[in-house]
Design a protein around this nucleic acid. Structure first.
Lengths: 328, 328
DNA sequence: TTGAAAGCGCTAACAA
DNA sequence: TTGTTAGCGCTTTCAA
């Protein structure tokens, strides 16, 4: 078995409480005994048993990052950025546990974590949010604006971002702008579509119904959606894609059809994944600060866990247009 | 506070021990009381406190997936496939904790997990392996062949796989085959380079020293490495890239130089990430069964944790050539 | 078949 | 400043 405070107490000739105090930085120990204990702890490579600690303190020493699904619908780069961001926010002794919702809520044991970062992607996720809230879980929702009151969330203003992208296309004299959108119920899809339509409306343009195609947020979906757009009698001269993956699929379809980006068709993506710099032509896109969002989410969660005052329960980050070569 | 077995015991009019037994499927309870208790547990939404359980059973109810680094040197798709694979292997009540080695080993508390899946990528990782072994941790190493005895590992025969890739190029009548390799100390780089050289040797060809370039496993690195190859007086007519990302970078450089794949230069990648199907031209590559490897690793780890006999401590999976359009 | 007692490693509360 | 006691929620052991 591992070293415990009692082992240290024995060797130091003090009670296990003195050891506990010394180890936890209490002032009620003389410097001398503290040093002796700290040294001993180091020598013996003492590691606290967090089960025991957690049992008495009613803490779990871990936070959960929950995704709707780990295996599909989510781009690898998005997932990784999220994990990375949260991981950076972790404070000492805290573990990062990964979960998804695929097993159903009945089996979901919220009580195993001190708090949850929920990377929310669709409206149906509200069920989980209510579930977590009902159990009094410390919760930070990331990536999606939440209608429920008093929910701490970090989002990106995706409507404005999409508007910005389409405005840029308009500014570069494209007029027949189509949209390859994400899956229907996903909030990002809804917002990005709204931004697209806002921009067109403001420019007194309208978009034909078949100018909006679902690309399922995947490369393959973007490919097929673009093929449908190219099959139209009145083809678009530019396409706003609701993520980079679909833009890459679209690019492939355009190339396959013997057309050129950006001269025949302009293309804009969304997210600014690394790959955007290395397509031919490189992809003009919207930079979404995913990692920053996740990191901030983690920091907020620790504030909640430590019962600190949250100055700002709802935070909205700003995305930026990144101009490359897929727009003329 | 949450519901405990004592709460259930009180309502059921039995001792907490009977509840414990009933909940854990002991036969020493009458069917009648068992049913009463099980029903009560469900109604009260009882969730066991795994800290308490873990404390007495000396279990942690979580396994750790450890990467060398979470933030760099690793392709997002690789990381995600690993997580996904391990996640699928998880048995009831087990959490998946993600970690990296960036903090240094002194702070690494192995005792917080019942076992570790170590996704090893470089020889210097051996330090962690020895560290874990010295502490008697249950350990499964994934992705890299380990020289140490008695270490359970799941690997892919990358030497043969690389050989297969280069043999295919030879078979398609390329003769001046270069290699864009990964970072020097990474095992995969070493193996893939060996396979490349084996194939050339068997064909009685030699490769000039400057025909092997380091592309750092990144898109950007592949791009630069390809530019170097294109600047040679005697250019290659084909390039074997040690991963798909570098192949994508290389493709970009070839396009920028006004050359065509596969007519001017043939290109082969490694891993078979989704993107390979959607480059123009689509990328011929080696399919590496990453998710399967990780899942198998998880399953092996649970066998170790449950003290089961391992029939096969070292498992080597086989990679496959996936033929697409980047080779003539 | 059930229950009582003890203890896993730790900390809070109290006593000295 | 230090030590003693009790108890967090659970299981093991032993007794009934």
């Amino acid at each position: 078995m591992a070293i415990t405070i009692k082992d240290i107490a024995l060797k130091a000739g003090v009670s296990h409480m003195t050891v506990s105090r010394a180890l936890n930085g209490s002032k009620l120990v003389t410097d001398e005994t503290r040093e002796k204990i700290l040294l001993l702890a180091k020598q013996l490579k003492y590691k606290p048993n967090l089960h025991a600690k957690g049992l008495v303190l009613n803490k779990k020493f871990s936070i959960a990052v929950v995704f709707s699904t780990l295996s599909s619908k989510t781009a690898p780069s998005f997932l990784l950025s999220c994990l990375n961001g949260v991981y950076q926010s972790l404070t000492k002794d805290y573990n990062l546990v990964i979960k998804d919702l695929s097993q159903g809520l009945e089996h979901f044991n919220l009580s195993r974590a001190d708090g949850v970062i929920f990377v929310s992607q669709q409206e149906s996720d509200d069920e989980f949010i209510r579930f977590a809230l009902a159990q009094g879980a410390k919760l930070v929702v990331v990536n999606r604006k939440i209608a429920l009151p008093n929910v701490v969330s970090i989002t990106v203003d995706e409507i404005s971002a999409a508007e910005m992208a389409v405005n840029y296309l308009l500014q570069r004299d494209y007029r027949k702008i189509a949209c390859i959108n994400g899956p229907e119920l996903i909030q990002s899809s809804i917002d990005r579509l709204a931004g697209y339509q806002n921009a067109l409306t403001q420019a007194n343009l309208t978009s034909a119904a078949d100018f909006v195609q679902d690309g399922g947020f995947s490369i393959a979906g973007g490919f097929i959606a673009m093929q449908r757009l190219l099959a139209l009698e009145d083809k678009p001269d530019a396409v706003f894609c609701a993520n980079d993956e679909m833009a890459i699929g679209a690019l492939k379809a355009i190339n396959d059809a013997g057309l050129k980006v950006p001269s025949d068709i302009g293309l804009v993506g969304f997210n600014d994944s690394e790959i955007c710099q290395y397509t031919t032509p490189s992809l003009t896109t919207i930079h979404k600060p995913i990692e920053q969002m996740a990191k901030l989410g983690g920091e907020r969660l620790f504030q909640l866990i430590n019962n600190m005052q949250l100055t700002n329960p709802v935070t909205e980050l700003v995305a930026e247009l990144v101009i490359r070569d897929s727009v003329r």
